[in-house]
Amino acid sequence: MKKLFLLLAAAMLFLSACGDETAAPEKEEPKEDVKQEEKEQPKKEDKEQPKDGPKEEDSSIDTSMYEYSKSVEVTDAIDINNYVSLIIRMNDNLQPGLAFQHATTQTYDFLHQPAIKGADKVGINIILNDKKIAMYEVDISKFQPNDDEPMADVVMEASVVEMMSPEVEEYANTMDIPLNKE
């Protein structure tokens, strides 16, 4: 009986020792998973970064002059086709005509920067309350800075209007802002 009891105790001891060995790798596996997740997290963060942010940071084109905007997206295609495109999302509390005038006036300063040298044309898209209110294209060769005229007028004299909402067109006519619709 002592032999049986001793044999049983040895078997239990053996099984408990084997159980610990199989349990230990299970505990270590989650640690490896955590390490793998930590390695993957930076990749996820890179993918989750907004596409607009890095473009503005990586680009040498400055959009800080657009004070009345929520955001400005720049497409710099100077190397490809001598073109720069802007999507200017204006603050939603502005009226359409005033949003147009602010964006156009600030475009005057935008056109002075050295970073857009080499561009033949600059496309301007003005968005207010998720609706495009104006779209025009500035011909850089026709842009002649003049401090004696309103800045919006100088910009629009060098531009061709491709699209404009009726409210903005009425405002521009009231303010005598020239609109070329070639």
Rank of each mutant, 00 (worst) to 15 (best):
D147G: 15
D130G: 05
D139M: 11
A119T: 02
Y136W: 05
I126P: 04
D130P: 02
D130T: 07
I126S: 04
V138P: 06
E137H: 07
K142W: 13
V138T: 06
D130L: 07
V138D: 04
K131H: 13
K132I: 09
K121R: 14
L128G: 02
I127S: 03
I124F: 07
I127G: 00
I127E: 05
K142G: 13
K142T: 12
Q144N: 14
A134K: 01
G118I: 05
A134T: 01
A119R: 00
P145K: 05
G118P: 03
N146A: 13
F143Y: 12
D120K: 11
Y136E: 02
A119M: 04
G118F: 07
A119V: 05
V138S: 06
I127D: 03
D139K: 07
Y136I: 04
G123V: 09
S141N: 07
K131N: 13
A119K: 00
I124D: 02
D147R: 07
A119W: 02
D139F: 13
N129C: 05
A119Y: 03
D147V: 14
N129G: 04
G123W: 08
L128V: 03
N129V: 05
I127P: 00
V122R: 00
S141K: 06
K132C: 04
D147H: 11
A119F: 05
M135G: 13
L128S: 02
I126K: 01
E137T: 14
F143R: 01
I126L: 06
Q144S: 15
D139G: 08
V122I: 11
A119L: 05
G118E: 02
D120P: 06
I133Y: 00
N125A: 10
K121D: 15
S141A: 13
D130Y: 09
K132P: 04
N125D: 11
I127L: 05
Q144R: 13
N129W: 01
N146I: 09
P145R: 04
I133F: 03
I140Y: 10
K131T: 12
F143A: 10
V122Q: 02
N146H: 08
K142Y: 13
I126F: 08
V122A: 07
S141E: 11
N125M: 08
K142D: 15
N129F: 04
S141Y: 08
